[in-house]
Amino acid sequence: GQVHVGDTTYHFPNPEEARKFAEKAAKENNLQVTQHGNTFKVE
């Protein structure tokens, strides 16, 4: 799974890890998570 936060892309071998990371980043920054397959975008 990939997580895009601003201009930075994080790669995770496990989509579940990617999702947890995205949700945590979104919560900390008052942002939203959008999911496209195994790619998550925090914005």
Rank of each mutant, 00 (worst) to 15 (best):
G1M: 09
G1N: 07
G1I: 11
G1Y: 15
G1E: 02
Q2V: 15
Q2S: 13
Q2C: 15
V3K: 00
V3D: 00
H4R: 13
H4K: 13
V5G: 02
G6M: 07
G6P: 01
D7C: 14
D7L: 10
D7W: 09
D7I: 08
T8M: 14
T9N: 05
T9S: 06
Y10V: 05
Y10R: 04
Y10G: 02
H11L: 11
H11C: 14
H11V: 09
F12C: 06
F12H: 01
F12I: 00
F12Q: 03
P13N: 12
P13G: 09
N14L: 05
N14Q: 04
N14K: 03
N14C: 08
N14Y: 05
N14W: 03
P15D: 05
P15W: 14
E16M: 08
E16D: 11
E17Y: 05
E17Q: 10
E17L: 13
A18Y: 00
A18N: 00
A18P: 00
A18H: 00
A18V: 00
R19A: 07
R19W: 06
R19S: 05
R19C: 11
R19T: 01
K20I: 13
K20H: 09
K20W: 07
F21E: 02
F21Q: 02
F21V: 01
F21N: 01
A22Q: 00
A22K: 00
A22V: 02
E23M: 09
E23N: 07
E23D: 09
K24F: 11
K24T: 10
A25I: 15
A26S: 05
A26K: 01
A26P: 00
A26G: 06
A26W: 01
K27I: 10
K27E: 10
E28A: 13
E28S: 10
N29G: 13
N30E: 06
N30Y: 06
N30D: 10
L31E: 05
L31Y: 08
L31Q: 07
Q32L: 11
Q32K: 14
Q32P: 06
Q32A: 10
Q32W: 09
V33S: 02
V33A: 03
V33G: 01
T34P: 00
Q35G: 05
H36A: 09
H36R: 09
G37S: 02
G37D: 07
N38Y: 05
T39I: 15
K41W: 15
K41M: 14
K41D: 13
K41Q: 11
V42I: 08
V42L: 11
E43F: 11
E43I: 11
E43D: 10
